[in-house]
């Protein structure tokens, strides 16, 4: 079972926007969709390292601000002809608070 940690209020993120959370495993982009779903993705495009948190959010997709790679926030998978994937982390909203996977508090085994 996933253990979650509270990182802030849903109101802290604009709809169709994102905020960054610093973690032991690097920066994580936490997105909020137009219908108030949240997604947590590694804040680093596999193409040239662009900050996905600064991308335009459309539906459950985000477009990297540097070279327009598009990622499905559900899976982290690059769309269309581009190949690549960003790490995703469990995230949810509960009582107006945003919770993300608590394993982000720890350094990953590989690190």
């Amino acid at each position: 079972m996933t253990i979650f940690v509270d990182i802030g209020s849903l109101d802290d993120i604009p709809a169709q926007g994102a905020r960054v959370v610093r973690t032991a495993q690097g920066c994580v982009a936490v997105f909020r969709t137009a219908d108030d779903r949240v997604f947590a993705l590694e804040d680093r495009c596999p193409h040239k390292g662009g900050p996905l948190s600064e991308g335009i959010v459309h539906g459950t997709f985000v477009t990297c601000p540097l070279h327009n790679w598009v990622f499905d926030m559900n899976t982290g998978q690059a769309q269309g002809a581009d190949e690549g994937r960003v790490r995703t982390f469990a995230a949810k909203v509960q009582g107006g608070r945003i919770l993300i996977d608590a394993t982000l508090l720890r350094r990953s085994a590989a690190a």
Partner: peptide
Amino acid sequence: PKWAPLADLTLEA
């Protein structure tokens, strides 16, 4: 404040 990270979990870790 909206320009800074929302949270810094490295501090808690």
